[in-house]
């Protein structure tokens, strides 16, 4: 008999400090849902229940920002780190303990601004982790400065004359940098967000899900209504996500219409972890456990020959 994992497994008692109406709630809910739903999916495909993703099997790594407090509001292994750096931290954790399901949650500034170098490198590196970017086009936690994804002309305290640079295009950059799963969702459609997260986690390789998420407190331009008027679902229009050219064109749609869904995916490519030969016989964590019990110092003696 298959029992469905209850998303409430991931609930925690911490007091949530997000503003009323913040889109982060949808993302949090979606994440909990995704872990639970995936369980059903997996249990249906495979006879054994222990391939479900339980709280102890997952690690959520976040950066700094309102949304990055997400791990604090879940019962799951979590690491709330420093601004711009969850991606390399998550990558290191995954390489050390490949059995963990690693999910990165951070904001647009954290990922595309200060974390930009790691973002681009991770796209080409293709580690088997999933990244959810809570893209609210503003720096919410530090009270309302413009962000890399703010549109040109957006007026904030650090852009009183309007932002000079045009917005960063995460979809296009990800595709160009070689990411193998590039998707966008909208917090106003939480079920779709959950679906994208599930597909992202299931995808073998790096998955980027950029979630358009209205910041009700500080961003009065990119509101739920703003998005509602523009978003449409790629799946409804017969978009082929394996077609990179098509994906590229979709990545540049923004002003009038904003495509949601999987823009691009390349399946069947080896992940970074797949190709690390030294992981074949065990992981840094598993090997250490063995060594701590049985150090076998004789195994190193032959290395001295290299210095003779």
């Amino acid at each position: 008999m298959v029992t469905r994992l209850d998303p409430k497994l991931f609930d925690s008692t911490a007091e949530v400090t997000w503003c009323a109406g913040c889109g982060d709630f949808a993302i949090l809910k979606a994440l909990k849902q995704a872990f639970a739903d995936l369980a059903i999916l997996r249990a249906l495909k495979i006879a054994f229940a222990d391939l479900d993703i339980l709280p102890h099997q997952a690690l959520v790594v976040s950066g700094i920002g309102c949304g990055s407090k997400l791990p604090d509001y879940m019962t799951v292994n979590g690491y709330m780190t420093i601004h711009g750096r969850p991606l390399p931290i998550a990558t290191g954790a995954k390489l050390a303990s490949p059995g963990l399901h690693v999910v990165v949650v951070n904001g647009d500034g954290d990922s595309y601004g200060i974390g930009g170098n790691h973002f681009v490198q991770t796209c080409r590196r293709n580690p088997d982790i999933t990244q959810i970017v809570e893209n609210n086009q503003i720096y919410g936690l530090t009270k309302g400065q413009y962000s890399p994804t703010s549109d040109k002309g957006f007026i904030t305290t650090t852009s009183p004359d309007g932002a000079i640079e045009p917005a960063f295009n995460p979809m296009a950059v990800a595709i160009a940098a070689g990411a193998t799963f590039v998707a966008r969702a909208f917090a106003g459609q939480p079920k779709h967000v959950a679906q994208m997260i599930e597909e992202g986690i299931q995808h073998r390789g790096y998955a980027l899900i950029d979630v358009l998420q209205p910041c009700v407190t500080f961003n009065r331009v990119n509101t739920y209504d703003f998005y509602r008027q523009r978003v449409y679902n790629l799946a409804d229009e017969g978009h082929d996500p394996t077609d990179r050219e098509a994906a590229w064109r979709k990545a540049y749609e923004w002003e009038e219409r904003i495509p949601l869904g999987v823009l691009y995916r390349a399946d069947g490519l080896p992940t970074y972890d797949d190709q690390v030969k030294t992981l074949d016989g065990g992981s840094p964590v598993s090997r250490l456990t063995e060594l701590a019990k049985d150090p076998r110092p004789a195994q190193y003696e032959s290395l001295k020959d290299g210095f003779l």
Partner: peptide, 15 residues
Amino acid sequence: DPMFDSHLFLGWVVS
């Protein structure tokens, strides 16, 4: 959307 909750509802109103 079956996952539409009170928070999202408020999000519409607050903005």
